[in-house]
């Protein structure tokens, strides 16, 4: 379903400072131009290096690792947002990305309008949205607020709406970045059940979380990343134990 071959992702740290005329000009004037260029060469780091793994259909794979380990970058590579510097990604099937919910919301628009906008961003068709509109509203528990601009929503409400839109179809591949902590306790339970339902329905899931308990509950395989390098791949409990030990000493 998903195959990653020798993925390497290079970030250029010098990039930020170089994209303005002013800076280039200052560099030239102060004679730093040459020196900077040389420095720039060393000024990158590998967010991912030699990452290889394979996900079969129906597998639920957890990604763990400390902050900055490259988990989110990996999800972005899989979902096609970023092209890897090295290696190749093969994905068979339709992806529904839930990397940071509500990415496609326009805060000025109402919830109703945002359901269509966000749905379109996620690649749904108009017919599908018309058909599922009621379900989305029902699941989000936001019926009374349908015609309120999203900017007046609390963060929990926004997240609930986003989750409801993202999970309304049964995608073949679901990419989830730390979202089960969405909304109040009731909604958390509901969203977890929804996830379980999708998993049972045969959806392949890539799941990033710092909550080891939810990883243990959901995943049947875990990839542990550290500094962009795969530390361990394998049985959920085993890898989680090793990770926990290395983190907490």
């Amino acid at each position: 379903m998903i195959t990653l071959n020798n993925i390497g992702m290079k970030y250029n740290l010098g990039v930020e400072r170089d994209n303005s005329f002013k800076q280039t000009f200052i560099n030239i004037l102060s004679g730093k131009h040459r020196k900077n260029k040389k420095k720039k060469e060393d000024n990158f780091f590998w967010a991912l290096k030699d990452v290889n793994f394979h996900v079969d259909k129906g597998e639920v794979v957890g990604l763990i690792g400390s902050n900055g380990a490259g988990k989110s970058t990996l999800l972005k590579v899989v979902s096609g947002v970023m092209k890897p510097t090295e290696g190749s990604v093969q994905v068979n099937g339709q992806i529904s990305p839930m990397i940071e919910l509500g990415a496609g919301f326009d805060m000025e628009l109402t919830a109703r309008e945002n359901i269509y906008l966000n749905g379109a961003v996620l690649g749904y068709s108009k017919e599908l949205l018309d058909e599922k509109f009621e379900d989305i509203v029902e699941f989000s528990e936001l019926r009374e607020f349908l015609d309120v601009p999203v900017k007046n929503f609390s963060s929990g409400m926004t997240a609930k709406l986003a989750f409801s839109i993202a999970t309304i179809v049964d995608p073949e591949i679901l990419i989830v970045d730390e979202i089960l902590s969405v909304g109040d306790i009731k909604f958390q339970e509901k969203s977890k059940n929804k996830m379980m339902e999708m998993i049972k329905g045969g959806t392949t899931v890539l799941y990033v979380s710092h909550n080891l308990q939810s990883i243990r509950d959901l995943c049947n395989k875990v990839v542990w990343l550290e500094h962009g390098v795969v530390q361990e791949i394998g049985d959920t409990n085993e890898v989680c134990d090793h990770y926990y030990k290395s983190q907490m000493g």
Partner: peptide, 20 residues
Amino acid sequence: KKYRFLMNELISRDFKVKYK
């Protein structure tokens, strides 16, 4: 074809925001 609906939505978003 695939992204026509998205394009429609983006354009109508612009209209809605413009005249809110």
